[in-house]
Design a protein around this nucleic acid. Structure first.
Lengths: 190, 190
DNA sequence: GTCTATACGATGATAGAC
DNA sequence: GTCTATCATCGTATAGAC
């Protein structure tokens, strides 16, 4: 199964969005990256520059929402659910660093109604994550910290793992996950 | 002491950089924000758009480096030093949210040699932060986690506090600091 | 210190030949 | 499916009148 030209174009665009930011990445650069001499040739494969951004942002939003839905359905303890969410973020960030970077850092350049769509899904995810923390506090598994502060302290840390953890680091993904569990779960435990 | 027009221009620019990102904020918008009809009028108060970005990035880099230098000079334990660094980040992020946001999120649009300057200072800060973590591991105060993973797990969380903690939240800065201490220091403690 | 006028390049995108 | 040619728009920045 070789990749279609459309896939190659979308991937090249995503990589440039990651490297330079969405606005700084030009259609002419994307064209050059896939071996096209003219930016206009790109329009056989995409409708607009924003189409790529929309696809990345929405696909990843779905990915995280599906992930948390699966976690919610288990009968695990709050501690295990929290670990499963951390695992979810680390998996996605290390397996598909490009798209998760664009998803995390470039969504604000979405135009309406896509921006609103995105923010709604994002807020939904955060609320469901917070519910898990709250249930752990209620059960006595977690300390009685402010759930919102705990949510964002943990979520910020795992959301921006792509920012520093790059392929080729001496730490393996297994090391990463083990230490992040210690750092972010042990402090919360009662 | 009323503000000079130059100060007002720089502040308006910084706010737009925060709200829309450096590239998306235009000189025409900045002009409008300070009551000028023409973007060209801004050039009496600044040399270029980038001058504002350079000032913000370098001033804040200095701020953090001075902060960590002060912490290093104390005879505190590694735990107390780590708490002092967390306090440093929370103080700056809550007292000067605009400039710390631009500093954190827009530095990559610096041109050379400013970009190199910035990255050198940033790397220096991270190395010194890591040394404190390593000293705590060596002394047995901290668990034997990977120092790099611990550094970035903690630093990422406190570096992007501005991303979610906004003035007017129900949590006070005191609450924030107390809970962040619990979450990020307790997990690391031996 | 603010304005008008303008230079000049880069941008995303379209129409139509091949 | 890629090319050439072209467009309208917007970007930062400068020169010079007032």
């Amino acid at each position: 199964m070789s990749k279609t030209k459309k896939q190659l174009v979308f991937e090249a665009a995503a990589e440039l969005f990651m490297e330079k930011g969405y606005l700084a990445a030009s259609m002419r650069e994307i064209a050059k990256k896939v071996g096209l001499e003219q930016a206009s040739s790109l329009y056989n494969h995409l409708k607009s520059k924003e189409e790529v951004l929309i696809k990345i942002c929405l696909e990843n939003a779905e990915r995280f929402i599906n992930g948390i839905a699966a976690v919610e359905q288990t009968s695990s303890t709050p501690i295990e659910k929290l670990k499963a969410l951390i695992h979810l973020h680390i998996s996605i960030a290390t397996e598909d660093r490009t798209s998760v970077t664009v998803f995390n850092d470039e969504w604000r350049h979405l135009s309406e109604p896509h921006l609103n769509d995105f923010l709604t899904k994002r807020k939904d995810y955060e609320n469901r994550f917070k519910k898990i923390i709250e249930s752990g506090i209620a059960s006595g598994d977690f300390k009685a910290v402010d759930p919102t502060i705990a949510l964002y302290t943990i979520l910020t840390s795992i959301r921006w793992i792509h920012y520093w953890y790059k392929p080729g680091r001496s730490q393996s993904v297994v090391d990463l996950e083990r230490d992040v569990f210690v750092l972010l779960v042990e402090g919360l435990k009662n």
